[in-house]
Design a protein around this nucleic acid. Structure first.
Lengths: 323, 323
DNA sequence: ATGAATTCTGCACATATGTGCAATAATCAA
DNA sequence: TTGATTATTGCACATATGTGCAGAATTCAT
């Protein structure tokens, strides 16, 4: 045992090796370099870890319930669903955290070297970003899909936190989008969209492999963040109600049939047109809580979702009134 | 997908494959044969299982406390100890079950193809046997160390259950020892020990690679099983007290300094002499509960233990008065 | 302190697992 | 129904991991 390892017990070493190997997918060769041991010594350390119960293999058998729900969502809507079971009587916040954490765990399935990911900010994706694992995806890029500036701030701090957490998780190149969520004047948007710096970001957005988004919703009880806090005025909200808007993806609004083009406010939004979104190969939506049902139905009707992370109750509700 | 797999969801298949691979150490080739798939399909099923969270890797970092206790036991007594942390306020029965289960999990470390294991019956080893994993050790043998017959029964049913559970776990050849725990007359023991059928078993016992035993104890509050239930009469117990016996291993009694030879009752016991036990390469003792302290001290003083599975509280107690 | 016994370590080979690729099967859209 | 697209599968090769063996290091007993 080399000098620098003295004082570290075998259990300690075995635990470190096990964490790197099983939780972070390191190769034994690389762990050996880090611990100043040979590859075969690492193999034996891992055996020790397994033998001593330091490593434990758990099998979480998916319940029939979540399996069935996922299958029904697949056959009815052609959506690949991950149904996340949450304990009963949980608050909406608790549910959001659990869905965020489970989503973060499984998002790695979509990551490939060289991938470009488009990210829409919001409270759901914020929850996911807080739980992101250490994925390390070579040559990856994370680009913000919609600006976050409003009356009170550039929004960079808020959306930037979400972007940076993803960027850190993947070791990705992070591309912020420092424009308002909504322009006051559609003409101002046209002008900005001609700027080379903006065009560069729009170009990246147009070529993303994977979009990750939550859903904003517009019922009058507890509106999503975009409908408050300096993003939209009262007359804007009245317009949205008049247009029968049920929700938004990346600050682009849509109705319950998925239509979005002729909604006036979309001309001022910095988010991508939903036709462009539909051209993205994989479109991952994260939805937590039955308050999202109407927005979810509109997004499904519009065909904007390929993959869905959803809690069990919301999945049930979604399937309930679908006959 | 072959016909016979229809109706089984991918999650179901992935779960089965994961259980066989991670919990029962099956090779992918063999799992493929069982599921009628190729080896590489199994590899992909396992990847699916990992990606979907069906398999979960847990790292149980050993606490400093149990590490420290184990280290102290090692340096003070030259015993390799596994300290098992049990939740506070547990009953003695709960503690015994947890220690039994954890011991069963880790016993596999001692198993090698061709191994011969000597087993002493008792309530502690009964707990271990109830939790034994499916180990499958080629060419293994499990031999009973001490007879279990008493006034009321041959003891085969009780000790046989323990033996058979070990035998099933290892896929081992099981050798029962159908004699009384204690003969009435030492001369009867001498006669039986000349019988060829008995000699054959004694020969196997003399060559065991690993002995597994609990400790009987002889305080007057809650005596171990061997001191009641038709094994010993009142005068026997008086004799044991007069001899200052603190406990027994496989129904062979010893004092607090480990001495055992000149204890009269040992001439009638069917258990192996403790000198012979000492010649066994690995001697695993399982001890749960501080009521075992005096017996444990005697066994340690006699040098009968190489490896110890012990609960945290008992370990603390053992180290406490050792200055 | 010394010799015996046991444990640890890396090398080299054996074995197990990962994965690109092409063919096939299943799914989707018109 | 048909053609296009996507997913699945096994083969064959590449890569990762397991482990026997001999030498070195450590521990144990005297």
């Amino acid at each position: 045992m080399p000098d620098e390892l003295e004082g570290r017990s075998k259990n300690d070493l075995a635990t470190t090796a096990a964490e790197l190997y099983y939780l972070q997918d390191w190769k034994m060769e690389d762990i050996g370099k880090k611990l100043n041991l040979s590859r075969s010594s690492v193999s034996r350390l891992l055996e020790t870890a397994r033998n001593r119960g330091i490593v434990e293999f758990r099998i979480n058998r998916p319940s029939d319930r979540s399996n069935n729900l996922a299958e029904q969502l697949k056959s009815k809507y052609s959506i690949s669903a991950n149904v996340i079971e949450v304990f009963e009587n949980s608050t909406a916040d608790e549910r959001l955290e659990i869905v965020g954490a489970e989503t973060a765990k499984k998002l790695g399935n979509f990551f490939r070297p060289g991938i470009t990911i488009g990210l829409a900010w919001g409270s759901t994706i914020s929850s996911v970003s807080r739980h992101m694992h250490n994925y390390r995806v070579a040559n990856s890029t994370v680009v913000q899909l919609n600006g976050a500036g409003n009356d009170h701030s550039t929004g960079i701090s808020y959306s930037g936190e979400i972007l940076n957490q993803f960027g850190q998780s993947l070791g990705a190149n992070v591309v912020h989008f420092p424009v308002p969520a909504f322009f006051d004047d559609p003409a101002a948007k046209q002008v900005m969209w001609k700027e080379r710096s903006t065009k560069r970001i729009l170009d990246i957005q147009s070529r993303i492999d994977l979009a990750i988004f939550g859903l904003g919703r517009i019922d009058s009880e507890v509106p999503s963040q975009v409908y408050q806090a300096g993003y939209l005025g009262k007359s804007d909200l009245d317009d949205l109600n008049a247009e029968q808007v049920v929700g938004d993806i990346a600050t682009v609004f849509f109705r319950s049939d998925g239509s979005w083009r002729d909604i006036g406010l979309n001309n001022r939004s910095s988010g991508p047109g939903l036709d462009q979104l539909k051209r993205t190969p994989k479109r991952v939506c994260v939805a937590s809580g039955i308050a999202k049902i109407e927005a979810l139905r509109g997004a499904i009707a519009g065909g904007y979702i390929t993959d869905l992370f959803i809690d069990d109750l919301t999945a049930e509700k979604l399937l309930e009134n679908s006959n």
